[in-house]
Every structure is written in C-alpha cells, then in structure tokens.
Design a protein around this nucleic acid. Sequence first.
DNA 1: TTGAGATTGTTCGGATACGAATAATATAAA
DNA 2: TTTATATTATTCGTATCCGAACAATCTCAA
Lengths: 164, 164
Amino acid sequence: MTGSHTLTETESRVANRLSHMTLDFEAMAVTSNLFRAASAVRNHFERTVLAESGLSWTAFVVLWVTWIWEPAETREIAAEASISKATLTGVLTTLEKMGLAKRSRSAEDGRLVIVTLLPAGHKLMEKLFPEFNKHEVEVVEPVAKGQRRALADSLRAITAKIEG
Amino acid sequence: MTGSHTLTETESRVANRLSHMTLDFEAMAVTSNLFRAASAVRNHFERTVLAESGLSWTAFVVLWVTWIWEPAETREIAAEASISKATLTGVLTTLEKMGLAKRSRSAEDGRLVIVTLLPAGHKLMEKLFPEFNKHEVEVVEPVAKGQRRALADSLRAITAKIEG
DNA sequence: TTGAGATTGTTCGGATACGAATAATATAAA
DNA sequence: TTTATATTATTCGTATCCGAACAATCTCAA
C-alpha cells in the first residue's frame, strides 16, 4: 500500500463527511484499487524491465503494438495503445530518435502514416518481451490461479461498457 | 475495445512472433486489461464528471485525499494519490491557482508543508463527490454484484505485492 | 469538375509525470 | 557545540498526455 491508512479507515472518514448521502463503497473500492494497481504496475515496470532500455511505458506499448501489427497505421496504434493521436505523434518522434521505428506515408491514402520497426526495434522486442512477460507473471502471482481469468474478464467488461 | 482486434487475434499474432517461447497469456491478459480499464475509466471521468469543474483526474484525487485527511502533509497526499512528490508540487500549484486549496508551513517541523482546503474546495467536493460516486457505480455495473469484492481484492493484492 | 464535408496526422498550449539535484530543516553522534 | 546523516518540498530537464485548431488529403454528391 502506498498510503498509511487502511481502506476501512478511509471509508469511515468519507462516511463522516457525507453521512447524509448514500454511497456505494464497493464501487469506490473497485475504481480506487484499479488506479492504485495500474499505477503501481506501470511504475514497477518502468523501473525494472524498461529502465535498461530507456523506454517509457507508453513507448514500450507503442513499440509492442507496432511489432505485432506492423506495418501499422498510426490510428490503429493509438487506439490499441489507448492514447490520443496527439500523444502518439510525440512518442513516435521519440522512437524514431532512438532508432527503433520509422514513419512512412501511405501510398494508397496520403493522409495516413504507416509505422514499421527498424532492425534495432525488432532486436529489442525479441529480447525485451519475454522478460516483460516474466514480470507480468510475477505481478499476477498473488491472484489465485483460478481467479485470473475472472479478473481479466471483469476488467474487460468495464472497458467495454465505457467505450462501447 | 479501443482497437479493432480481438484478444485471441492478438494472442495468435504474439504466438507467431514468439513461437519458440513459452508465454503466460493469462498474465498478459490481466495486465493488458488492467491498463485498458484504468485508462478508459480515467478518460471517461475526465470527460464527464470532472470536465465541468475543469479538474484533471490527478487534481481531483489530490483534492479528494486532502478533503478526507485535512490538514494533510504533502508526503501523505503523494503516497495516497500514488504520485511522486515532484508531481504533487505542480498539482498543488494548480489547485492554489484555482482557489481550491492552500499550502502552509508546519510549525512543528519546518520541512513539512501542510495542505488544507479553501471554502471553494469544500463546496466543490461536497457537490462533486456524490456525482463522482454515481459514475463509479455506473462503471462497475457490468461486473456481477458478487464479483465486485473479488475484483477489488485481486487488484489490492497486486498492488500490495509490488509495493510491499 | 467542383466544392462541401469528412478524415487524418501534426502543431500548439497547458497540465501532468518522474528522476535527479538542490536547499532547508531536523536529528543524531562526537 | 559541531558535524555528519537523514528527511522534506521544490526546482530542473525531459517526456508524456490531451483537446482544440490546423493543413493536407480523400470522398462523393451536384
């Protein structure tokens, strides 16, 4: 836990502040823990597996998506990486500066930009991704094996509901 | 889903790229969906409940933590909000500029900075938080009622494992 | 053919976001 | 008392991150 306060302590304080209101503490606990977990995992990955390559979390995700779907259109990448087009522009510039990926104009549609990995990008991902997955296993380890699919399903359901 | 590709399609592509490796797709699905969900929820909240107040997600969280624990030390707030001290400095400046909170030096320990809410901050949170919780309920709605506690517990376990 | 409307990537402005270095303060031992 | 060590918030540099405005391109109806 980041903070020094327990969940029940927080809930009781909130209840005091809003004693006249009916609040759904279970929903609160879900979103609250969702962000703590996402933030903790992201920082952990950036400080361990990704640190040696000098990649930010987002840079890695963009690289990964490109690696899987290449040649990939930027709009695809942005959607798959859950970032805006504006953000992707900056991250792609970073990846180009690092010599890992490159942009090229689409021949069919002059508006589109196509992204491919350079040799250094391929080499990096082939080394990095297995390590990354090992850390993913570690991260998920405290969740009982029989619970992991349910966890992924619940998270996917939340995303689908919002974005659907 | 943000992207146009299904999960199995992605997995099969990854398997092709790394057919010589043993990968844990279940762990991959958990972390992947964790970030999609967190990102989707955050953006949804920023575009709906928080948009009218002009608050970013982080600014809201900092405001909320302060509201609950006030008077609060900045190190407490940073830990509770899962952000670095450096980030908090900037966010607090924003909140002060908006007239919602204010800083003051601790009398006992000259190194510490104490944060309290201004009247406008109190008023805003009393109005905003119930609305926020309503959206939290909506977000969690697609997860079966009996599954919500398990979801929160799994997420908390992941955070604890990393930060413990 | 042309011109209105839609789509795409980039730019711009402003707000996070973090690690490292820093200055101020506190605490401890010598 | 003084000195070394530790702790705190801020500053600095750099990299996201997004919405809005923009220019380039495509589409399709008139």
